[in-house]
Design a protein around this nucleic acid. Structure first.
Lengths: 190, 190
DNA sequence: CATCTAATTAGATTATAATCAAATTAGATG
DNA sequence: CATCTAATTTGATTATAATCTAATTAGATG
């Protein structure tokens, strides 16, 4: 089972040693052995914890000679810490969006009523928006073309273009006039 | 070992089931069996998780006939979620103080420059202040008596009394003229 | 390329915790 | 007070993860 990013984030912070590391790094970058010294733990233990903090993307590092300095990514920390507060608040269903990059794009292109301002020209952004629209459809359900059109119209008038993009980008496939979601592994995103 | 409140909070959120419960309760109160049904788990399991969420104080409940409805305490959730961001930023390192009682005592006895107004006469308050002073030392590091004295002098001139208190109250131990922090489990506080 | 330093990985141990079935408790109500 | 319903506690099982020592890897530098 793939843990959601939000759970992983909090699991990572749910450890005294890691909170202390964060607390230390707030004052500035440090290298592994310095952290180990300050916390009275061994270097491998610190490595282990740094790896967990890196996984949730709140740590980055720079090498200086033999020594690697660890930095706290405070922006990301803030974003993730507040994610739980956005859970389910309908602020245009941004709830499910756990990724900062996607969050920004959706924030820019989706208006307060949920509709699409314009179709993003950049492929990367377009994919994010297509995924956003497609995510509200049910897995395994077969849709008629008319149903797909209606769904898309909630976002944008040019349903034909977007419907074709759904298929071309592998979000959906078409079989005998009906449309269905592809498994997520086939999506050109994530 | 007494976990800090912040760690406990994140540990509680570091579980998929509990995140889902929070997500459900954001839409409104629910009773145990309803939650169990929605999540496909048994009632005891929900009881277990609700207990953890109650421990971190983000759930409260109201009884209605035989049924207990669980509510999300969103205010507290917000406060706690943002606590990690305040770590280390507060006036005179009050940051690390997660306990309201300790906060007040430190506020009363520690002056703006970080030094100690007077040594509290009440044992309970004295312990809080001793802990505050001792917390700035490194775990596992050996200190000479002179180093300890210098550290204490940053707070109060009567370093001898305070140094003796450190040992008597089990914050530190002395071995061959050197001083070292005891493990936190031995501290007479928390 | 030999060697040094710091970080990481591997493997073992131990502690913590998620889940369930079964037993128990706490209120409500006839 | 007998009984019903929903919640909780107990005890067992299983999975996860924190930490250490020992071994290995990755860069830097002579």
């Amino acid at each position: 089972m793939q843990l959601s990013r939000l759970v992983k984030f909090h699991k990572a912070l749910g450890d005294e040693t890691r909170i202390r590391i964060i607390s230390l790094l707030k004052e500035g970058p440090l290298h592994g052995q310095a952290i180990a010294g300050k916390l009275g733990l061994t270097a491998p233990t610190i490595s282990h914890h740094i790896a967990k903090l890196r996984e949730i993307d709140i740590i980055f590092q720079r090498r200086e000679k033999n020594t690697i300095y660890f930095y706290l990514n405070e922006k990301k920390l803030t974003f993730m810490a507040e994610a739980i507060l956005r859970l389910g608040t309908d602020e245009m269903k941004l709830a499910q969006v756990e990724d900062e990059e996607k969050y920004k794009v959706i924030k820019n292109f989706i208006q307060a009523d949920g509709s699409l301002k314009t179709i993003p020209a950049q492929r990367k952004k377009r994919l994010i928006i297509l995924e956003h629209m497609v995510k509200q459809l049910d897995i395994g359900k077969k849709y008629t073309e008319r149903e797909i059109n209606e769904h898309i119209k909630k976002f944008h008038e040019d349903f034909a273009t977007i419907r074709r993009e759904f298929v071309m980008c592998q979000f959906m496939f078409r079989q005998g006039g009906e449309y269905e979601l592809n498994p997520k592994e086939m999506w050109p995103i994530n």
